[in-house]
Design a protein around this nucleic acid. Structure first.
Lengths: 134, 134
DNA sequence: ACATCTATTGACAAAATGCAGTTAGTTGGT
DNA sequence: ACCAACTAACTGCATTTTGTCAATAGATGT
């Protein structure tokens, strides 16, 4: 009996992951809108966007960067002048700037929806409390 | 040369989907915290949570319900008394109530992170404008 | 009889994820 | 000289998770 997603009762935590993925690319793109930079650097600046560096595999970041390059949002060149292994330095494109704008708009919508959901949740809780009190 | 996620330049829209998936289960669980109900009904009440019913395949909803049942957040029974085909009616469990609480908390965090991101974006834009004006 | 609406489920391809490993240059210690 | 640790980027692959597209089936209206 295979049965998909068997899950122990208590595995209610993967929502974090989803949340992270939702803002990963926008965060990267925003950083690149400020300054050009390379993956490794972006990776550890992600902390300031609320990312838990322990939970975030570097391959995801590198992969997202490559993907964004493939879709034309960013472009890259090799920097071999810096010390250490050479870096692939990314910079945002015009398409990327437009996309960033769109992403921010739709993230705004998502945030609103989340807040509405939370409001509903709170009023539901309140209601229950009143019934139980009665 | 295969290359993952090749994407035309302009496919900057899939963020919506992620946002939807982020709140789908919490929305369903919240509805079930209010009243027990069945998939088909929940499905069309999703509109009031900001879901575009055109974009959301019913099988996703049914699957999420089954998955939540598998993890013990909800439980179900068959209702054959109602007219039409029989329904699988779900109700939330105690574990589900706790989970709902946790989900709402972590969604709150996500909303905050999104808002911070948007703030950064706005101040970045402002900065650029000032430089260009100078 | 046939279309339509209600209601749920299944199968399968495509995409996303996590993990581990590979390649390489640099720095510093013993 | 050798080894460990850090920086830096990438690849491969087995799972999970999605999205799509049906298939099934009772009920209702014409």
């Amino acid at each position: 009996m295979p049965g998909r997603r068997q899950g122990k009762p208590g595995s209610c935590r993967q929502r974090q992951r989803r949340g992270m993925r939702l803002i990963l690319r926008p965060s990267l793109l925003l950083m690149l809108a400020e300054n050009e930079s390379h993956g490794y650097d972006l990776l550890d600046r992600l902390g300031s966007f609320g990312f838990d560096s322990g939970r975030l595999d570097s391959s995801i970041v590198y992969r997202d960067l490559r993907d964004m390059e493939a879709t034309g949002l960013i472009e890259s060149y090799w920097d071999d002048d810096s010390k250490g292994p050479k870096r692939r330095v990314y910079r945002i494109t015009d398409v990327g700037l437009i996309c960033l704008e769109e992403w921010m708009a739709s993230l705004g919508t998502v945030a609103e929806q989340i807040n509405q959901l939370i409001q509903k949740f709170k009023s539901n809780k309140k209601e229950k409390k009143e019934i139980n009190h009665d």
